[in-house]
Amino acid sequence: MRALEWAATHPTRVRSIAAVGTTAATTAEHIAWAAAQTAAIRADARFAGGDYYDAADGEGPHVRLGIARMIAHTTYRSEPELHTRFGRSVQPDDDGIEGDVLRGPGEPGSGQHAIESYLAHHADKLARRFDANTYLRIVHAVNTHDVGRGRGGAEAALAGFAGPALVAAVDSDRLYPLSHSKELAAALPGCEGVDLLHSDVGHDGFLVESAALNALVETLLDRVDEDV
């Protein structure tokens, strides 16, 4: 998203860009997913309107921050990958049918499915290293992303940037589907079309399929060298 802004704002200073798994403008669905995340954080009593920095260790809004992460993480993966990886399996020594749903994640007898444990693990990891206010600011920045705003649309905004451009999409990405990349590629004069990364994991495929992405970036850099 920032690369697109740089290309639109400084088209003669930017030599080339790579836009991977992104969009020219955040959509209503993106904002809808984000709304659930930000609502979770603000609903945490320990959030205190964002004024929690004097709270004792463990007394900040980490629980609802973790819930926000669980929502977001689900959008980063694909349904086929989650089904193949977890299916309907439950945690060892637990029962997903007879379990007590009033028990919290990780408590014996909670009836927790493996996918629930996986999401809870990632929630805990993020909550231990990230700041809730920062999370809200990042979400707001993504929600307001629209490279064509005030510039006559994406095509007009990017028309002045003629440098080599890579637009890549992950074929299983439900957060930024292929259609978004096609629209973006059409708006970039220096783009030769969308490069498709195959991955079963969804949006995070651009992280998992690093070798394939590296090859695309190398090709882009070769084009840059040719233009120098």
Rank of each mutant, 00 (worst) to 15 (best):
G66R: 08
R85W: 06
V142T: 10
A68D: 02
I67C: 07
A141Q: 13
A123I: 08
P80M: 07
D95W: 06
R15I: 12
Y76M: 07
A25C: 01
D57S: 02
T12F: 11
V147W: 11
A32I: 00
T23R: 07
G60P: 02
A32G: 11
A8R: 09
D57K: 01
A45H: 10
T144F: 00
S78G: 07
A55N: 05
A40L: 02
E59H: 13
S110V: 01
H121Q: 09
H62D: 11
A72L: 02
P61M: 05
I41D: 09
V63P: 01
R46F: 00
N143E: 14
G60V: 02
E79C: 01
A40M: 12
A120Q: 11
D131G: 09
E116Q: 14
A25L: 04
D95I: 06
D54C: 06
L126N: 05
R128G: 05
A43N: 06
A28C: 04
G152V: 02
G66V: 03
V20K: 00
G49A: 09
A28E: 10
I138R: 07
H73A: 04
H140A: 15
V90M: 01
D93N: 14
R77Y: 07
I97K: 10
Y52P: 04
D94I: 00
H30E: 01
H10P: 02
A32K: 03
V14I: 15
H73V: 06
R137F: 01
L126G: 01
H30S: 00
E81L: 07
R46A: 07
A55F: 11
T74W: 12
T9C: 06
N143H: 08
R149I: 11
T38E: 14
Q37A: 00
A120N: 12
T75N: 02
I97M: 04
R15V: 15
H122Y: 15
I138Q: 12
I115F: 13
A55R: 08
R42F: 02
Q37R: 15
A45K: 10
A25W: 03
E107C: 01
S110G: 14
H122D: 05
R64S: 09
I138W: 02
G87D: 10
E81A: 15
R85H: 09
A48I: 01
E107K: 09
H113M: 12
L65V: 08
P11H: 08
T134A: 11
G109P: 09
W6R: 09
Y135D: 10
D124S: 13
G152K: 01
Y135I: 14
E29H: 05
G152S: 03
S89Y: 03
A45W: 08
T75F: 14
A141V: 08
L126E: 10
T134E: 06
A72S: 11
Y52F: 09
V63A: 10
P105R: 07
H10E: 15
G49D: 03
W33G: 10
A55L: 03
G58R: 03
Y118K: 03
V139P: 05
G60Y: 06
A7W: 02
Q112E: 13
A36S: 11
A39P: 00
V139T: 15
I115R: 14
Y53N: 03
H30P: 04
R128K: 14
R137P: 00
G150E: 08
T84E: 13
A32H: 13
E81S: 13
